[in-house]
């Protein structure tokens, strides 16, 4: 909040540096969230919802046009055998492949997200980060996943990080901006909270845990802290910010626990792919296998699902 108590958006002064996180409390809260039991019909519904929230991702040096095409076709029709299975929310690729993905996904309603700002390290001059983002936006990206400069952040140059995000947001134009905090490098939950607050104040539409290139990637404690930051930001400003845990969510059960966490922290308004995403690749097949298991009663094997 600024000094006179009136909230002005996009102001570094709004960032509260004095929030500290109770790690034991986070653990206790999660223990309760993990104990929720989701079975049968609710399991099917939650699984369908989770599929619809996936940002199907390929971010490898060896990505090729064929791989991106394959990914797009999987995003639109995750599993041919059942017509009720929704498409994923988006595909997430390097800027080079945005134009191709955009063409492949035309008319399907699946968004194209591009990682940007010298992903995954973010160690490049600002001019290059802007160029990187512009390129992706011009190629038609609906969403930009930027990384913050963790080195600067850990040195305490918070205003640098704030300005960087604000600048990229400006370049994004209509494209949605997801800000990757790379929580695996932020060391403490306090810093995760601070980075979340900085990103939201600087204009992020989404905050995202990780690049997927660093271990640990998305974890439940980090996600809970970020969800709570979103909740408090909403109470303060009335603006709904999205959340995207990315990397490391591989099990069907874990995905459902994340949904419970969103529901119990932010409420049902956030339970759709406008405000919640999973950054994942292998999770999609895991969800599909569980879904088909519920439909047929038989445990499934990976060889009957498309390779990704």
């Amino acid at each position: 909040m600024s000094k006179n108590g009136i909230y002005t958006p996009l102001d570094f002064k709004n960032v509260d540096f004095n929030v500290s996180i109770d790690e034991v409390g986070v653990g206790d809260r999660l223990a309760r969230i993990k104990s929720r039991s989701i079975k049968k019909a609710s399991k099917v519904e939650a699984t369908l919802m989770a599929i619809n929230m996936i940002d199907l991702t390929t971010l490898e040096g060896m990505d090729s046009p064929a791989k991106v095409r394959q990914l797009c076709s999987k995003a639109m029709r995750p599993h041919e055998e059942y017509e009720n299975i929704p498409s994923t929310a988006a595909v997430c690729v390097y800027p080079n492949y945005v134009a191709l993905a955009k063409k492949e996904l035309k008319g399907s309603g699946v968004n194209v997200a591009a990682v940007s700002t010298a992903f995954p390290s973010g160690n490049a001059p600002m001019s290059i980060k802007i160029e990187d983002t512009k390129f992706a936006v011009d190629a038609g990206a609906d969403e930009i996943d930027m990384v913050i400069s963790r080195g600067k952040f850990l040195c305490g140059e918070y205003n640098f990080v704030f300005d960087e995000i604000a600048k990229i947001k400006e370049v994004c134009g209509k494209a949605h901006l997801k800000v990757i905090l790379e929580t695996g490098e932020l060391e403490t939950l306090d810093k995760v909270r601070l980075a979340s607050d900085i990103a939201m104040e600087a204009g992020a539409d989404f905050i995202k845990t990780s690049t997927g290139k660093i271990q640990p990637a998305a974890t439940m404690p980090v996600t809970l802290v970020m969800l709570e930051a979103i909740r408090e930001f909403y109470y303060r400003t009335g603006k709904m910010i999205g959340m995207k845990p990315a990397g490391g969510i591989k099990q069907h059960k874990d995905a459902l626990k994340y949904l419970v966490m969103v529901k119990e922290t932010l409420g049902e308004a956030w339970l759709n792919n406008k405000y919640f995403r999973f950054g994942a690749s292998s999770l999609a097949n895991e969800l599909l296998m569980q879904l088909v298991k519920e439909y047929t009663g038989n445990y499934q094997a990976p060889e009957y699902f498309s390779i990704d």
Binding site: G297, N298, Y299, Q300, A301, P302, Y304
Partner: peptide, 8 residues
């Protein structure tokens, strides 16, 4: 039963 039905 699960011996028979498990697709793996």
């Amino acid at each position: 039963k699960h011996f028979g039905t498990h697709m793996n």
